[in-house]
Write a protein that binds this DNA or RNA. Structure first.
Lengths: 122, 122
DNA sequence: AGCAGATATTAGCCTAGGCTATGTTTTGGA
DNA sequence: TCCAAAACATAGCCTAGGCTAATATCTGCT
């Protein structure tokens, strides 16, 4: 069950990696039906996060880009944190997905502090 | 947005603390309308997690008790982990709620390992 | 140029969790 | 005892995320 932010994040990734974000790729990468992508994109558009040119892919608005880079930062912080705790990459990535939308700033800062301390020790 | 497991957990808490779990208390504690509790309880009953005696409160089935104690264990593990990371109690409790349903066993084990190591050091 | 296959859209349906408003039952206190 | 307040139930609606099936559009290849 992906959340809006995950879609935005993925659109950003696809734009960076492939140069364009097509629904078919989003569907494949998220393991979801194309119709689901269409519905979600409609919501994202309504919320001013993406713009679409029909049959020409999906683009991020300013707000969408801001959300994507914030999400990306959070995602990477959580993944690094999990890796440091000794999780394998796959689990770290998967669980970060589940966690990053549900923790407060305070907790993210605690993760960051932990990483900083760990680095000092190494 | 509470999830079924949260309701089961709360029913267990209420039964322990108050001796009975009434919808009105569930609604108050979860900050949710009574009608929402009624709907959720119907689902929990359908799924064999609780039984109700109308106007006599809600009870846990075997399966419900199993879920509740597993949830409780997870919850406490996550809270202890967050406290050890330096979070205040309120944040730890709140964020644990968000996290405990979204991490794998492997991650919970990593949390437990971390706590065990920390204890050795103290 | 035209058509087949890829891609996108639309319609219609589902589930979990929410809400308000409107009944019903129960129950405790005068 | 009986009745009002508290508790519970029901109806109707909403949203985010899912699905399938059917339709429309586009694009690349012959």
């Amino acid at each position: 069950m992906a959340v809006a932010e995950d879609y935005v994040e993925l659109v950003a990734d696809l734009l960076r990696e492939e140069g364009e974000a097509r629904s078919v790729d989003i569907a494949r990468r998220m393991g979801v039906a194309q119709a689901t992508v269409a519905a979600t994109v409609t919501r994202l558009q309504r919320d001013g996060l993406v713009a679409t040119k029909p049959y020409r892919g999906i683009f991020l608005t300013e707000a969408g880009q801001a959300m994507a880079s914030a999400a990306r930062e959070r995602h990477e912080l959580v993944v690094r944190f999990f890796l440091t705790l000794g999780l394998d990459r796959a689990t770290a990535e998967a669980d970060a997905e589940g966690v990053e939308h549900h923790v407060s700033e305070a907790t993210l800062e605690a993760f960051a502090r932990f990483l900083a301390e760990r680095k000092d020790m190494a």
